[in-house]
């Protein structure tokens, strides 16, 4: 299980790094909103992997909160961008 945990951690770190590059470079605010959504999902995957590795369910409620907060953030950024662009 340790080998699997190391592999999954490496893959998720690479995914998070690429997503961060898009957040920094992204030409528009919507690119950044989409990339932030992906980064949050990568964080959820990392927390779930940690819970699976240590067989410890303490962090599972955090996953529910993160799933909901990511949705609210993405939608509110889209609303903000559309209102600003329609002026």
């Amino acid at each position: 299980m340790t080998v699997i945990a190391v592999i999954v951690t490496a893959l998720l770190v690479a995914a998070g790094g690429l997503t961060l590059v898009r957040i920094i470079r992204g030409p528009s605010i919507l690119d950044r909103a989409v990339a932030t959504d992906v980064l949050l999902a990568v964080a959820v995957a990392a927390i779930a992997t940690e819970a699976a590795y240590s067989r410890d369910a303490t962090a599972l409620p955090v996953l529910v909160v993160l799933a909901l907060v990511g949705f609210v953030g993405s939608v509110s950024v889209a609303r903000f961008a559309s209102r600003r662009s329609s002026k």
């Binding site: 690479a14 690429l18 997503t19 898009r22 992906v38 990568v42 995957a45 992997t49």
Partner: peptide, 13 residues
Amino acid sequence: GALLCLAAGIALI
């Protein structure tokens, strides 16, 4: 699942 997350990251770039 981690491979698909990485695929999403590469696609974002």
